[in-house]
């Protein structure tokens, strides 16, 4: 499976991650609306890395499981980690207060969402969207 990766160091790397996500989504066969959704999700994750962990990487690739085809995005960093995952996944949490973005938004835009995080060690968020 071919995957590509972008390291997130500056704000412009968020744009690079978006770009990569959109073209990968298009190649896999997602429609324009889903392409935009996937890109938004990637954007949120990359922005969190840039804001909270300072550096990290976003890896994007075609993904197959149980005969389904989709796109998988892994956002990974060695930053401060998230103490209370349940809290940040709660609707209405996030610094944008009820604007729907942030991690709960990412979860909603995608089909699968997984988070592994340890305070002081870092965060790894894996998201998948299936072609339907």
């Amino acid at each position: 499976m071919d995957v590509s990766s972008v390291s997130i160091l500056t704000e412009w790397d968020i744009v690079a991650a978006r770009q990569m996500g959109r073209s990968e989504a298009k190649t896999i066969g997602f429609g324009a609306v889903d392409q935009a959704r996937i890109t938004t999700a990637i954007s949120e994750l990359a922005r969190n890395i840039y804001l909270y962990a300072e550096q990290g990487s976003v890896t994007i690739g075609r993904f197959e499981k149980d005969g389904k085809v989709g796109i998988r995005v892994i956002a990974e960093d060695q930053g401060p980690g998230i103490g209370d995952v349940q809290l940040v996944l709660q609707d209405g949490y996030s610094s944008s207060y009820g604007l729907g973005a942030g991690l709960p938004g990412v979860k909603r835009l995608m089909d699968e969402f997984d988070i592994q995080t340890e305070v002081g060690e870092g965060t790894k968020i894996t998201i998948v969207k299936w072609l339907s």
């Binding site: 604007l99 729907g100 909603r108």
Partner: peptide, 12 residues
């Protein structure tokens, strides 16, 4: 691109 944000806000 804009409307995705509005959609998320609406659902939330």
């Amino acid at each position: 691109e804009f409307m995705i944000q509005y959609g998320l806000a609406l659902r939330e």
